[in-house]
Amino acid sequence: MKSYLISLIIPLNLCIFLVILGVLFAIFKRKLLSFFSIMAGLSWLLLWSLPITSLILGGYLENRYPYTPPSISPTAEAIVVFGGNTANNRANWFGNYSKQTRHARIDTADDLFFMGKAPKIILSGAALEGNVSEAQGMAMQLRNRGIPKENLLIENKSTTTRENAFFVDKLLKQEGITKILLVTSALHMPRSMAVLQNLGYHPIPAPNPPQIVLPPGLHPFLPNTRALEGSRSIIKEYIGLMTYYIRGWI
């Protein structure tokens, strides 16, 4: 249900739907309804194409749990990494993708581990496509960076944030772990923190650096394709928070 709702209100999809609806109203000579339907669709598209919309709505979520450099993060018994790749792990929401500047969640986990912030890393995420789960993929990358296999725990059944928390909870109880550092994107952190808090944990937020930052030369009130493309992630988080709240998961 949530995925259908997200797909429907993605700016371009909703704009197309409302414009088509407006044309149908026009065919049946409902001129006022036609005008408002078309204008609503175009306005929704324009709103999300402006960087200022991402800066306000996405920035609010990113700043709920401000970024703390790994070097000054407190210690814990384990680092928990929720799977995902918000905006393809771009260093900047509005910039082009670059392997040199990208910052994945395992980069933060890697830094925390080698700085001695926790002795174990718990990786959470099922296979979104293919046979290798997201957790297994992250584990392979971390092992290639020198983290021993025995320091990694894998949870590869979860496909949603709620399932991340549910299955990680089982692992934590098996290991007798209560104090954790939680790693995910800054945008995803409010919902991730909330589901774990609902299970009785008090995670220490260790988000990736914020991505929704206005780069030099980009005007906040001029349409931008990256702002429009990235709108799905912001909309997804707000719908996720609303859905989880209604269902009592947070």
Score class of each variant (00 low, 15 high):
Asp111Thr: 09
Ala227Gly: 11
Ile204Glu: 01
Thr75Pro: 12
Glu77Pro: 04
Glu155Gln: 07
Gly146Phe: 01
Val23Gly: 11
Ile72Asp: 14
Pro190Ile: 04
Ile204Ala: 01
Thr75Arg: 15
Ile212Met: 03
Ile147Cys: 08
Gly137Leu: 04
Gly84Cys: 13
Leu214Gly: 03
Asn156Ile: 00
Ile20Arg: 10
Thr178Lys: 15
Leu46Trp: 08
Ser185Leu: 13
Ala135His: 00
Ala104Tyr: 12
Leu12Ser: 14
Pro11Ala: 12
Leu14Gln: 13
Leu152Ala: 06
Lys236Cys: 14
Ser54Ile: 03
Gln211Cys: 11
Pro190Met: 02
Ile147Gln: 06
Phe94Ala: 03
Ile154Arg: 06
Ile6Asp: 00
Ala26Asn: 14
Glu237Gln: 13
Phe113Ala: 00
Pro148Arg: 14
Glu62Trp: 05
Arg90Ser: 06
Gly176Lys: 07
Pro69Arg: 09
Gln141His: 13
Leu171Val: 09
Val23Pro: 05
Gln174Tyr: 12
Thr53Gln: 03
Ala78Thr: 01
Thr108Ser: 11
Ile122Val: 05
Leu153Tyr: 02
Glu237Met: 11
Leu222Asn: 08
Leu5Trp: 08
Pro70Thr: 00
Trp93Gly: 04
Ala194Leu: 06
Tyr60Trp: 14
Gly59Cys: 12
Val23Gln: 10
Pro74Val: 11
Gln136Tyr: 03
Phe36Tyr: 10
Ile239Asn: 01
Leu12Ala: 15
Lys236Arg: 15
Lys99Asn: 09
Thr108Val: 13
Arg64Pro: 09
Leu46Cys: 10
Asn89Phe: 06
Leu172Gln: 00
Tyr201Pro: 01
Asn63Phe: 08
Ser133Trp: 02
Cys15Leu: 14
Thr178Gly: 13
Gly200Ser: 07
Asn151Lys: 15
Leu152Pro: 02
Ser37Asp: 11
Gly230Arg: 06
Gly116Glu: 13
Leu18Ala: 12
His202Gly: 05
Lys157Trp: 03
Phe166Thr: 14
Pro220Trp: 05
Ser133Glu: 04
Leu181Asp: 02
Glu163Ile: 02
Phe166His: 14
Phe35Trp: 14
Pro66Gln: 12
Ala165Arg: 06
